[in-house]
Design a protein around this nucleic acid. Structure first.
Lengths: 328, 328
DNA sequence: GCAACTAGGTCGGTTACCGACCTAGTTCGG
DNA sequence: CCGAACTAGGTCGGTAACCGACCTAGTTGC
């Protein structure tokens, strides 16, 4: 039995089960003497994973939270759950979590056994996209590929369709992934253009490694996120929406999240400002509030809401008042 | 240097980065000779984690997908992303993934360092709940506690509020977690009643371990999921909704997921049937379709949609026709 | 007070581990 | 077509880790 390290991993795996393990049972499972188990536990503690022991008759060992993340040893099903979860996070595009979630997904997808990969794909397909319209859902495969190229410092060959619909092929040095307003952007140095460019991920048709490694160059003025943000508002057609909501400011702020400005208006009412580039998304966020509201700007959103309201009223009215057909 | 196992973990961590590592650099990082790195890699392969090597000048090592899940070694940020993702999965309550996602979350929360726990909590709070109204969001703490009790075979003391609003305290032997229709249920043996009971998780006010361990008893007739399902429809007030949608059956089925029955009606239209116990959820799902639809049943849903439609039209109409102030 | 735990010291035999050195085979770029 | 930069792996000898066996001490719950 030359398997000291393997045994430590198995021990770690056992200890991660949220229950207490008596040393004797650990010894039985690992097929070593109880003394060796105690030594193994010492080793784990030495490495930095705090194993806590409750003494006494019904005592036992278990792994508790320490300073560093221990390696997560997941069962098959659990790994699938984690993969699904990361895909959800990626679709939510939580600001500040962009690279971390992409990185975690890339790590996981890299080592996910094939049979689990299939299960993830089918469950993901069966999962209901909660985005309205044909919202920006991201292809996880593309995301992990780009994340891998960034950390591996590999050039990428992108097939890209611009906002105007022109397709082009670029060779880029990928630098960072950034999320802004539920969209993913790749900040990269375009070899052909000789300058920094941002690419919207849902407009990248295909990406494949272009072979050569590159040495990273200093990011553009002000850092990646700032650069992307500066390009965003100047290029993309975004809507700034203003609305009044018949609900207390703090409750609205809590329900809409930090990306929305909320200012109190008068007792029990407030005014909000938010930015986005998909009207559907805006409309649903507002409708989800559960309070009455009035949109002041932009006219496109008002028009969209009018259509949505008509559709919903129609859905209800058709059965309720069959004698007066709704105007559509 | 007694650090062989620790080094193996670090090596595993390096290899999980989606890039290729030349042996020489691994040796430098791990502060051992290249020969030892090769031996370590052999060890990993022996344990069952397939390390692939590309030969030649620009070659290197990297971890690839094998038969078993290797331990995931996550950076701090990545662990936060995984935690957020699992919470999302738990809220989605994907059928078949119930216990696995709860188990993974329990494992992670058990070992998540305190500083990361805080970040998860604040980001989770900042995240916008996509459920309409005061939908059934699950407290992850409660969920992990129950998952831990199940796998640890520990009795639980529950403070429970029944559907009628009666509060009671029960001591139960938790058996399984089951999801059905976006809700979580605990199947447990009620010590006081001497029989199996199902508890809706969002009605459990508090749970704490009741000390003693128990030996698991055989589940009720037909298995846990079947038992919960049989109780569900007989007890809970659920709505069966029927609607006609002006869109092709297959597209609607794709967008609504497998939990909804879709049957073709005529060219480009279909009829759907779905079950749920929250009207908001139903209305939201239908409105999200992006197609015209008409609800046939139930009357409560029609009423709800009428109010929703009025609210949205009001939001649009107020600014569009400023000469006619809306009734407030 | 006994049973069932954790905790840890000591000893001796075994063997795993490591670095150094060397050979073989592959791939890529010039 | 050769050399550079890799992976791959054999051998050797000294060192240190590892393990089981045995024993003592302290804690907790029944």
């Amino acid at each position: 039995m030359a398997h000291t390290p393997a045994r430590l991993l198995r021990l770690l795996s056992l200890l991660q089960t949220p229950r207490e393990w008596p040393g004797s049972e650990l010894a039985r499972r690992l097929e070593v003497s109880p003394r060796t188990v105690r030594r193994d536990i010492d080793r784990l503690r030495e490495i930095g994973y705090p194993v806590e022991a409750t003494q006494g008759a019904a005592g036992g060992y278990r792994l508790v939270a320490g300073r560093a993340m221990p390696p997560l040893l997941l069962e098959d099903e659990e790994a699938v759950a984690v993969a699904l979860g990361l895909r959800a996070v990626v679709n939510d595009a939580i600001e500040g979590m962009d690279e971390a979630s992409a990185g975690a997904l890339a790590k996981l997808e890299q080592v996910l056994p094939a049979r689990l990969r299939h299960r993830v794909a089918s469950l993901h397909a069966a999962t209901v996209p909660l985005t309205p319209g044909d919202g920006p859902t991201i292809d996880p495969g593309l995301l992990t590929q780009i994340a891998a190229a960034i950390s591996g410092r590999e050039r990428l060959r992108l097939a890209y369709r611009s906002g105007q619909g022109d397709e082009s092929e670029r060779v880029v040095e990928p630098h960072r992934l950034v999320t802004a307003g539920r969209r993913w952007y790749l900040l990269a140095h375009d070899r052909g253009r000789g300058d920094w460019r941002t690419f919207r991920l849902d407009r990248i048709l295909a990406a494949r490694p272009a072979g050569a490694r590159f040495t990273p160059r200093p990011p553009p003025q002000g850092g990646a996120a700032a650069y992307v943000a500066s390009r965003l508002y100047s290029l993309a057609p975004t809507y700034g929406a203003v609305a009044r909501v018949d609900a207390p400011a703090e409750e609205v702020a809590r329900r809409l999240g930090p990306a929305v400005e909320v200012e109190p208006h008068d007792a029990g009412r407030c005014r909000i400002r938010m930015h986005t580039d998909t009207l559907e998304w805006l409309a649903f966020r507002l409708a989800l509030l559960g309070s009455d509201f009035e949109v002041e700007e932009p006219p496109e959103l008002i028009e969209h809401l009018r259509r949505l309201g008509a559709r919903i009223s129609h859905a209800a009215g058709a059965a309720a008042r069959p004698t007066r057909p709704p105007a559509m």
